[in-house]
Amino acid sequence: MTAEQLISFARGAPSLDIIDVEGLKAAAARAFDADPAGVTAYGTSVGYVPLRKWIAEKHGVSPDQVIVTNGSLQADAFLFNHLVQPGDDVVVEKPTYDRTLLSLQNLGAKVHQVTLQSDGIDVDELRTLLESGVRPKLAHIIPNYQNPAGITLSVEKRQALLALAAQYEFTIFEDDPYVDIRFRGDALPSMLSQAVSINGAENLVVHASSFTKTVCPGVRVGYLVGPAALIDAIAKKATNLYISPGMVSEAIVHQFCVSGDIERSVATVSAALGERARVLGESLRKHIPGATFTEPDGGYFLWVDLPSDVNVDKLFPAAMKKGVAIVKGSDFLLEGGHSSVRLAYSAVTVEQIDEGVRRLAEAIEEVRG
């Protein structure tokens, strides 16, 4: 492998070798055979109706609580645009997904970042913020294998968040695209499913997920689950924006799901990424002994805190020169993160990982010296 070949730890996307291309081709053929009229028509703003029904059954809700969108980023955008006005307080995790920060800042929201601990958002810090008089419209939470930190929110904290949402009347936006990519541990109940048991919380969770991480990014299919009235209001805005999302890709995803191919795809991606995460951890310990990190139990990302004399603004170009791409920790924070990086292990093969970390270690030594 030559230095010219870029090894990218930058993008949270599955590599081609773990995408079920044959399964998707077969699902496409079945979609056109089974429902040529539905696949080729405009469709409806709530998404391809059979897929909407499948998602509703998966989450144990009624179909009128689901809208299927062009990727979960659009689902996020619909919700933010619907709920957040300029000047509104919004809570996000610290660190959080860079595009979430950008979207909320572009809407003029007042963003409060609350510290992420090893078991999820610091609920005591959030409680103190709420007690100080801040009244957020929503709290954006990535509960499983968080992007960028790889952290999972504990069951206890899920319940504590729901109680705070009921008490202070804010919406929990449970942004959950990584949930099925689990390497170890048990699946935890979603806040969406837990909310029904907490008095006053049943309408306070909006849940988003996506088929990007389990099927492939190219389908661009994500969705929102929430109170029927909220989903209806968002669907009306979606109608005005684009009439309907892509019926072809949603029908392909539907066939992929009902055939059971989705379970096989999840198993393939989870096994491959579990192996890559393990190798990445080993390589970091070997080549960058001063680095600290928590190995994730699933998902796509590993967050690394480098020694404090490493500045990622200098490291980024030095690493690129050596043929390795990273994302700066500072991209995920309103302030700080200047010695941290996010490494995505999804698009790199096991063979590339050690070489990529070795190059990164060389770049670190250069910028420290």
Rank of each mutant, 00 (worst) to 15 (best):
I121R: 07
P289S: 12
V253W: 03
V84H: 08
S8W: 03
L116S: 09
D119S: 09
S210Q: 03
K321W: 00
S346A: 15
Q255C: 10
L130W: 03
D20K: 03
F80S: 01
Q146P: 02
V221K: 04
G222Y: 06
A271K: 12
S210P: 07
N81F: 02
H287V: 01
S330N: 13
E295Q: 15
D313G: 12
A27F: 08
F316G: 00
D98V: 10
E169C: 07
D17M: 03
Q255K: 04
L192E: 01
G87I: 08
D313M: 10
S197N: 12
G323E: 04
V310Y: 06
L204E: 08
I18K: 03
G120S: 08
Q146N: 15
G226Q: 05
I181P: 01
A41K: 11
V90Y: 03
K286L: 14
C216S: 12
V367A: 12
G246F: 00
L192D: 02
V68G: 05
L129H: 14
R182Q: 14
D176Y: 07
Q105M: 15
A3R: 11
A56L: 09
V206Y: 07
A344L: 02
V61N: 05
L116C: 04
N147P: 00
V49K: 13
T349A: 06
H59F: 15
Y168T: 09
G281N: 07
A238N: 14
D232A: 15
P296K: 06
N199K: 15
L162T: 03
V269N: 04
L306D: 08
L360K: 11
D119W: 03
M1Q: 07
V269T: 14
T214K: 06
R127V: 01
E282K: 10
F9M: 08
I231F: 04
I326S: 00
E131K: 15
S197G: 02
K94H: 13
E365H: 11
S249W: 03
G226P: 06
A166K: 09
F293H: 01
T268W: 01
E295C: 09
A41T: 11
P227C: 08
G369D: 11
K286V: 00
G87R: 11
G260H: 10
H338F: 08
Q194Y: 01
P50S: 05
T292F: 05
G290M: 07
E295D: 10
G38Y: 07
G87S: 06
S197R: 09
S259E: 14
S339L: 03
S249P: 04
D331F: 10
G290A: 15
L334P: 04
L83T: 02
G60P: 09
A319G: 05
G246T: 06
R285E: 14
P227L: 09
V206R: 00
S132N: 11
F32W: 11
S154A: 11
Q159L: 13
T171R: 12
N311T: 11
Y223F: 15
K314T: 07
H82F: 09
D64H: 11
R220F: 05
P217F: 01
G274R: 08
Y300N: 14
R276N: 15
L192G: 07
G222D: 06
L116T: 15
A267T: 15
R135T: 12
R184M: 12
A139F: 14
S339P: 06
A160V: 00
E93V: 02
L192P: 00
A28Q: 13
I181M: 13
G38E: 02
I252G: 04
F183T: 06
D305A: 15
V225F: 01
